[in-house]
Amino acid sequence: MSVETAKILPLRDGAGTKPKIVAKNVQKYFGNVLAMEDISCTINEREFVAIIGPSGCGKSTFLYLIAGFEKASQGELLINNELVVGPGPDRGVVFQEFVLFPWLTVLRNATLGLDIKGVPRQEAEERARKWLRLTGLSGFENAYPSSLSGGMKQRVAIARALSYDPEVLLLDEPFGALDVQTKNYMIQDLQNLWVEANRTIVMITHSVSEAVQLADRVLILSSRPSRIIADVAIKLPHPRDLRDPQVRRYEDEVTALLSAEVDKAMKRERQTFAGRS
């Protein structure tokens, strides 16, 4: 890790209390398939919220709704008390599949948001270089994405989102494709980046330990059609160690809630299957 991020981290005194993202009875249909039944939640300013749930339950969909890529079929989504009508530079998205542009170098990928904003090139490069440094990508500025490993691509995607300084960071399984070593580094990095960036972060994950290690709150979604079945506040200082018994206790709690939900879903599926045959 770079020297800059390795400094002693302050204890966070909790997130702000001003609502940043508000979902009110959000429902989402794809055709006549109900993907989300009824989601209501409030995410406060500078809060780090992890969303966890069985795969296919609509986590990415929820993120795309917040980002403004998809439209809710029912209910409403508010950012800063204003209705979300489309994507905007106040929300930075890091996709699970990186979605880097192969025709741009690492540096140009990272400056993209600033280039679009019309920030002068030199300033844009300065700001992008800072995040590339913090994500451990110094020396790769002029490489093309095709020459990078999956972990490095993921970090470019994160640096790209951070460089243009969005108020809200939306991360879709940002460590999903990484090997364990890289992942541990990235979790460390993200904790530090979060303190550095001082932003609201919504992170989707299917890993309980990731969620418990990083988030102020963990929202647990049910299987499709999804609802929020639990909202667990993790009241522990950062950085957290997974071996810490208190962290373990939260991990067990979230795991129990999640496996109960997965069990229920499986049973339901088997019943419908049995009923059909």
Binding site: A67, G86, P87, R91, F95, V99, I116
Partner: peptide, 14 residues
């Protein structure tokens, strides 16, 4: 071109 590529730049206010 995947729609995610378009989403990336649209979320930057393109």
């Amino acid at each position: 071109i995947g729609r995610h590529s378009l989403w990336v730049v649209r979320s930057m206010g393109a």
